[in-house]
Structures are given as C-alpha cells and as structure tokens.
Write a protein that binds this DNA or RNA. Structure first.
Lengths: 132, 132
DNA sequence: TAACAGTATGTAATAATATAACATTTATAA
DNA sequence: TTATAAATGTTATATTATTACATACTGTTA
C-alpha cells in the first residue's frame, strides 16, 4: 500500500473548490471564493496550489494560468499531462489516453536529454462550438 | 510562391533581439533591452510579441512566460510546437521531430474535438546538468 | 490623388498574476 | 520531548499583461 498524503486545512479548502468547479479556476478567483473561509492572502492560495500541483491533485493549465482538478482517480500522472482546450468556450478537459502517454513518456530524441515530465496542450474547437 | 510577411520596425527590433539571444527572453527583459531603440512601454513589446507569435517567427514558452525565436527556417510549424526544457539550467530548445509532430498533428480521441494547434513542453535535465 | 481600411505606433493608467521576507504555529517522527 | 519539516499568517512588492484612447503609417482602389 502506498502512503496516502493528507491535505492540510487550506489545501483541502482550495482543492474542494477547484474540484467542484466545472472549469479551470484562476488564483485570484480562488482567493475571492475562499475569503469567507479565512484565506485572505494570495500567498496562502499560491502555496496551497503549489503543493496540490506537486502531489498531483490538480494541474496547472499553463496557457491559461488556471488550475483544474486531476481527473484520474489515482493521480499518478501529474508528471505526464495532456489537455484539450476549446478556444471558443474555453472548456478544458484532461486527456487520458494510454497510447498517447506511453508514446510521450518514451519519447527520446538526439538531444540526449532525459525527460522526467511533460505537459501537452491541444487547442481547437469542441463539439458544441464547432457546430455553431 | 507564398507572400512574405514584412515585419514592422518594432517587430524587427524585438525579433532581432530574441533571435540573437541564446535563451528565452521575458517581456520586461526585452523591454529593458530595447529602450535605447525608442521602445518605451510594455504594450509596445507585447504587441510586437503577439504579432511575432502569430506569424510564427517566435514561440512562447508557456511554462516560463518567455519567448524564443523559431528554429525552423520555414516557420511553418507555429501551430505545432514542442520544446525541451532543462529544469536545472533552464536551457530551452525547440524539438523538431517529424515523427512526433506527425503523431500529434494526427492525434484524435473520443472527445470529437478538432485540434488545430498544440504545444508540448518536456522537462528534465539536459546532458550537461545530468552529468554534474 | 483622395478616400478608405487595415495595421502599427505612442502614452498613461491599471489590472492580473506571482513572489520575497519574516514571524509563528502545527504536524511528524526520532 | 525535542527536533525537524511542513504549513500558516501577514505585509509588502515584484512581475506579467491589458484597457483605453489618440495618432500615424501602408497599401489598395475609386
């Protein structure tokens, strides 16, 4: 059995908020939403976010400076992330495709670099927006 | 023959700076460096950067908020970018691997989403840093 | 050439995102 | 229990990016 990480108070508050959200959340929007729970300063939010990213409970969508909860129950793939982003409605969803992750995890080129992590963001139009 | 885009004065100044740089440059560092050429305000920099990204002369490294010149002479691949980033020395290089780009350009999953663009960032240790 | 459209520029102000520095408290484990 | 790591609280500030508005340049076409 693996040891289960126990989230701290602030981490839990912030994770729950992001997890409930149907869309990626930005740091200051998170701050606004948790002020009634006693989290008053940006740094408190950023510290929790950093930790949550580190343990794989959330991911940062780099192109949007926003955070979403990991969709994989096991959260083992925080080092191998892929997202699809609709450029019209800004809907973001995590891609879990084992072929893709296998392909990328094993990717190596002539650079001699050892990759320990990757992040992939696809952009396009989602089904809904495409048919408009 | 395709029509060749002609960069404007500010675009040229900023592109030349980024192109000469051995590492990704951040917007305010660019600003600092071009002030002697008469570009005084952040917005002037951001506007040029936006355009240069749009025409594929430079790419934004999303995880670093920094910009590098496109390494592909033709600059046709601004919609399909991949980078390797050393987490120790922060060296960044563009990956041009036709198998990879073919694989990703053709990637499709069950979401029904039509992807028109992607950005991939690999992280790890470069050869030099690995051997330290 | 005049009128127009599109693109680029200049400038000031401000919004949005993120971190530094320092003091204190809580949790974990030796 | 004592030490160590992790988390918290607070203030200030740094960094990244955009809004709003006025002006000028470039190329096209009537």
């Amino acid at each position: 059995m693996e040891k289960q990480y126990t989230m701290s108070k602030n981490q839990k508050i912030i994770f729950d908020l992001i997890d409930k959200s149907s869309e990626p959340m930005k740091a200051y929007s998170i701050l606004f939403n948790v002020q009634k729970k006693g989290i008053k300063a940006p740094l408190q939010v950023y510290r929790a976010l950093d930790k949550l990213v580190e343990i794989g409970k959330i991911h940062k969508i780099e192109s949007r400076n926003a955070f979403i909860a990991c969709q994989n129950s096991s959260c083992q793939i925080s080092k191998a992330t892929a997202f699809s982003i609709c450029e019209s409605c800004e809907n973001v969803s995590e891609i879990s495709n084992s072929k893709l992750s296998k392909y990328l995890s094993n990717f190596a080129d002539e650079s001699g670099m050892k990759y320990s992590k990757y992040n992939l963001e696809f952009f396009g139009l989602c089904k809904k927006c495409k048919s408009k």
